[in-house]
């Protein structure tokens, strides 16, 4: 029993250190040798319409292969438009234009 607990304890601490390593990598990646191109919010730029829940092709850009809404740190959408985008994606799901979930297809 005691051994078990010790094992569990050690495993959790190791995962904690892994998290820390990830964070360190992220911190380093913030200042890479090649600077990252700043992302542009297509809604803020006025290129796309956030409230158009019928445009499934446009919304696919903001949804992962498995159907999840992508975080704005990946798509570059501003907080205001991310909130509205989430609502339009959910509406498109309701009328069957977007999937709630999709199976991951390995290529």
């Amino acid at each position: 029993m005691a051994n078990d607990r010790k094992d569990r304890g050690s495993s959790s601490s190791s995962s904690g250190s892994r998290d820390r390593d990830d964070k360190r990598e992220k911190r380093n990646s913030k200042n890479p040798k090649r600077p990252r191109k700043p992302k542009v919010d297509p809604f803020k730029a006025g290129e796309l319409e956030v409230t158009d829940y019928h445009d499934a092709k446009m919304l696919r850009r903001f949804v992962s292969d498995t159907g999840k809404i992508l975080p704005r740190r990946r798509t570059g959408v501003t907080a205001k438009f991310q909130r509205r985008l989430a609502l339009t994606i959910k509406r498109a799901r309701q009328i069957g234009l977007l999937p709630f979930t999709d199976k991951l297809v390995r290529r």
């Binding site: 809604f43 803020k44 006025g46 290129e47 796309l48 319409e49 956030v50 409230t51 829940y53 438009f81 509205r84 509406r91 309701q94 009328i95 069957g96």
Partner: peptide, 16 residues
């Protein structure tokens, strides 16, 4: 098979 009513919000539009 399905019904959805959505309020139009032209003030939310982003497209110029």
């Amino acid at each position: 098979r399905r019904v959805m009513v959505v309020k139009q919000r032209p003030e939310w539009a982003s497209k110029k």
